[in-house]
Design a protein around this nucleic acid. Structure first.
Lengths: 232, 232
DNA sequence: TTGACTTTTATGTGTATACATAACAGCATA
DNA sequence: TATGCTGTTATGTATACACATAAAAGTCAA
């Protein structure tokens, strides 16, 4: 109970983490209140509060008013994936990035796409883009764009800048969802990616919105060998 | 420039976000300093600071001392994946969870495993577990455990509790890394998962450590159809 | 022009204080 | 017994203030 001075929220957080990792505070156990910890560490409650808040943000502890703070009973690992624009993904891996738009048409979208965008049946811009690293296929992108939510997209030239990057720069989004899975390459995708039909693909599906308004939904097909990494 | 009173950091953050999304502040542009914003919003600098800090944490803005705060020039989407223990993954999807340990032996690990664990060649515990949902294969897990870092693992019975869950409960970890990719099922995995050899699999590779000490590394093979979802 | 200083500035962080609010416990009343 | 009204308590948040610190900009002498 040695009261130290000038504890930073970082050192407090580190000590709290140590106690959790050492098993001193086990999953499910309630930990002392902010006031008590502040007294023990010889710092203000504000500092302890910030440390605990950050631990709660990262899912290590749970906090509830009046109840107190406890170590999360059944730990759920969280991995934060950073998903840059494709060009950056390629150049970060040391490749030379190019792209080519395979298909660009305005047509009535299939029901599955309207469902993904939560839109009534209507005309959407359908774009298919092949992204290349050092002239070799890197990823195939199949995208549908809600034209009315992306003004200018019909007139945009996607020669020097890919649809991916154009949208990121021109049409900000506020939220969306993303999912990852594996699938087999069908004939057309296999041909574009220059792999055998049936080969495993890493599939990323993504839909973005700007305050309720659906903007775009897309599937990105990465050939075998592609990895998405993160730390825990 | 109407100075409002009692702005919460949340409302300040919402307004800052609105300006970014509306294009009022474009990617790469510097935004006013904390003092100026505090004056505009009629709140203290502390409140603006917190709002900006949270935006920085979520990757919306970049902050540097003296330089100021600016909207991230090339936005990087971040997806936070929550990775629960397998049993929860199965029950959350409405399945009845069971598991069966296929292999359990102590042997000298292959070089690739030692490399993943950053350990010199030594004896490790090799565990293979099949996880089932409603008696049908859900995921196959191939795991190596650093016995000296997981006391008691040699004596643990993995009948009622899977190695996955045993380790999570008994051996806390402080950090690790995880990667996601797609691969084709080889003969033995295909047989266990009751799918055709060559079928696409969703592969999660994970290594955990406790303060530098490697604990375990594993590969988890999910058959086609499995999805990992998150919001942006 | 260069390099070693000082100043300025915006963010980073800690403290003391105050009040808000959710949730629980206990008591009182119908 | 059910219901409503207290407190009480722990976290949540806003404020004013102070000082730390990184980095840019300016100053000045060799």
């Amino acid at each position: 109970m040695t009261a130290r001075q000038n504890q930073s929220h970082q050192s407090v957080q580190a000590e709290l983490l140590r106690r959790i990792h050492s098993g001193e505070w086990t999953p499910g156990a309630f930990i002392p209140g902010e006031v008590e910890l502040a007294a023990e560490f010889g710092c203000s409650r504000t500092t302890v509060n910030r440390a605990l808040r950050q631990l709660a943000d990262s899912g290590i502890v749970e906090r509830k008013r009046k109840r107190g703070t406890r170590v999360v009973p059944m730990p759920i690992a969280r991995a934060t994936l950073e998903i840059p624009i494709i060009r950056k993904e390629v150049t970060d891996r040391g490749g030379h990035y190019t792209h080519s738009v395979i298909k660009r048409e305005i047509r009535t979208a299939p029901a599955s796409i309207n469902a993904r965008l939560q839109l009534p049946a209507q005309e959407l811009l359908h774009l298919q883009t092949l992204h290349l690293s050092d002239s070799r296929p890197f990823m195939f992108e199949d995208r549908w764009v809600n034209v009315s939510a992306a003004p200018g997209v019909e007139d945009a030239s996607f020669e020097s800048i890919s649809p991916n990057e154009w949208l990121v720069q021109e049409v900000p989004y506020s939220d969306g969802d993303i999912s990852f899975s594996a699938c087999a390459a069908d004939d057309s995708v296999a041909e574009l990616l220059e792999i055998r039909a049936g080969s495993p693909l890493f599939l990323v599906e993504r839909t973005t919105r700007l305050y309720q308004t659906p903007i775009t939904t897309l599937k990105m097909y990465y050939p075998e060998g592609f990895r998405m990494s993160s730390s825990l």
